[in-house]
Design a binder for these strands. Structure first.
Lengths: 213, 213
DNA sequence: GTTTTCATGCCTAATTCTAGGGATGCAGCC
DNA sequence: GGCTGCATCCCTAGAATTAGGCATGAAAAC
């Protein structure tokens, strides 16, 4: 197997030093560039097209997310592993969306970092538990099920269903044999309960909380 | 610190045995019940209200997801750690949505399992890299541009996505930095391709043929 | 038995959408 | 070069939606 060519993007000198040592301690890894900000990182990325990039997020001239994003835009095969502190949710998700293959907490032991790199090479996605917690929270959309599901009356749910299928207020009125005005009133009430202002928003919201579909 | 009371739900005898040994080898863990299917698992869950549940997904009489879901429904404080094989995407997400605090691949070493439990106690969410890969894919899907949809151009898809999220034409124009009129034209073209006459119908249709969501 | 909630019905003004039309520029293809 | 598809921009008229009201009867809840 060919050596793995690695790029490091990290502003803090001590961490940079540490990562460098970790990489160099492995005979099958080759350190092709060590950079300390976004600009240098992008240049090195294009110049060396490394196999792996260890990227910090909080950099003096921007976010490491820019480097990760550049990988996708340039259609490089570089795999990005974020090595960063405990950022706010937003940054974590930005990095993952940008295409990061893993996210390791900066303070993990050296051994964990090498492990993480190997997992990536095997097609896995190492994510430190402290970071994964944030990701899981995304999935575990708290269930205000009976909170709002039962907030809508059956009539309202019924009308919401018709709305979601593309029927106009007039058509719904005919289908249900009630007045057009009544339908609009129901819709207004649905909006208030869901805290939205349009049909599409209502559908979007209702789907999120499992009211329809 | 009080001992951690643990429940195991696992159908395969050898794995069950192994997990039991792992738990019993730790002096601060107490094994309160070992079960081998959903029914027993649910009963033990309610009877013992354990602090931690190690749950397998593929069980003879159903999915471990049911056990995890019961935790939330019963408002228990039990933390669920899935210990399972490499399931299909659907099951992984179902488990996470149901409230699993972690997902460890069945074949990991004993040491990793203990580590995972400790991560959970610290508030982290251990996810084996092979599983995390699936989760990451969820995040990294907003660019199937020329991939699947030959019918809609990428611009049209982009606008359709905004529509589906409840934005008005004016808002979309601002977001994309283009004219309101351009947006309406795009929408008209989308309608023609999808053979519909309104935003909601477009969403309904697009979802049916897998264009969005 | 009173209050609240729900479904029903109606009105109007402002906003947004939809469906026609037309026009320009740019890129890729034959 | 000419053609075609795509994105861009503009206009207008009519349809639909939205947001503000107001009001009544019946059923459910307290």
């Amino acid at each position: 197997m060919a050596t793995l060519r690695v790029l490091i993007v990290e502003d803090m000198a001590n961490v940079r030093e540490r990562l460098s040592n970790v990489i160099e301690s492995q005979s099958d890894f080759e350190l092709v560039a060590v950079t300390e900000n976004v600009e240098q990182g992008l240049q090195a990325l294009l110049a060396h097209k490394p196999d792996l990039a260890l990227v910090d997020l909080g950099l003096p001239d921007g976010s490491g997310v820019e480097v990760i994003r550049a990988i996708g835009q340039q259609k490089l095969k570089t795999q990005a592993l974020v090595i960063s502190g405990f950022q706010d949710e937003k940054n974590v998700f930005k990095a993952l969306e940008a295409g990061a293959r893993g996210y390791v907490y900066k303070l993990e032991e050296d051994q964990k970092i090498i492990e993480a790199i190997n997992y990536i090479l095997e097609g896995g996605a190492p994510i430190s538990p402290i970071i994964a917690r944030l990701v899981l929270n995304k999935f575990q959309t708290p269930e205000p099920d009976e909170n709002q599901t039962e907030a809508l009356t059956s009539k309202q749910q019924n009308i919401l269903l018709y709305i979601s299928q593309g029927f106009t207020s007039k058509e719904i009125a005919e289908k249900l044999g009630i007045s057009y005005y009544t339908v609009t009133t129901h819709i207004k009430n649905i909006y208030e309960k869901l805290q939205v202002n349009s049909r599409v928003e209502a559908i979007y919201e209702a789907r999120k909380i499992g009211l329809i579909d």
